[in-house]
Design a protein around this nucleic acid. Structure first.
Ligand SMILES: [Zn+2]
Ligand SMILES: [Zn+2]
Length: 109
DNA sequence: GTTCCAACGCTGACCTTC
DNA sequence: CGAAGGTCAGCGTTGGAA
């Protein structure tokens, strides 16, 4: 539920923060903010740590406070979109997996 | 010890290129 | 046309000086 909704006009919401998504970015339906943040984090190999243990609810306010939870949900969103096409994802996705060991955990599920 | 100003960093949206 | 990447401006946070 929620994941496979109807693709229509502008009803698509960001799978990370719930804001209005501008389209697909890195195989995930995200907004401009998460798009830029995702690219920034990968480019700079930034590593964040959540103060609450990584179990924060993502919304338009907490997304700015918990970068760790945001980046985590960004990755989860990618797998939620194409969970069965893991071996067929773009080269960029493979690059993300190699950069984050945490992603391996989700991959094994 | 408190308050104000300046500098730096991060986020969000827009434009350009592939 | 769509997506990815790059760029610019605005806001927030942090540090230093008065
Ligand atoms: Zn978002
Ligand atoms: Zn968090």
């Amino acid at each position: 539920m929620g994941s496979v909704g109807k693709s229509k006009g502008q009803d698509e919401l960001c799978v990370v923060c719930g804001d209005k998504a501008s389209g697909y970015h890195y195989n995930a339906l995200t907004c401009e903010g998460c798009k830029g943040f995702f690219r920034r984090s990968v480019t700079k190999k930034a590593v964040y740590h959540c103060k609450s243990g990584g179990s924060c609810e993502m919304d338009m306010y907490m997304r700015r406070k918990c970068q760790d939870c945001r980046l985590r949900k960004c990755r989860a969103g990618v797998y939620d979109v194409h969970p069965q096409e893991f071996g067929a994802v773009d080269h960029l996705l493979v690059n993300h997996i190699l950069f984050d060991q945490d992603v391996i955990t989700i991959f094994l599920i």
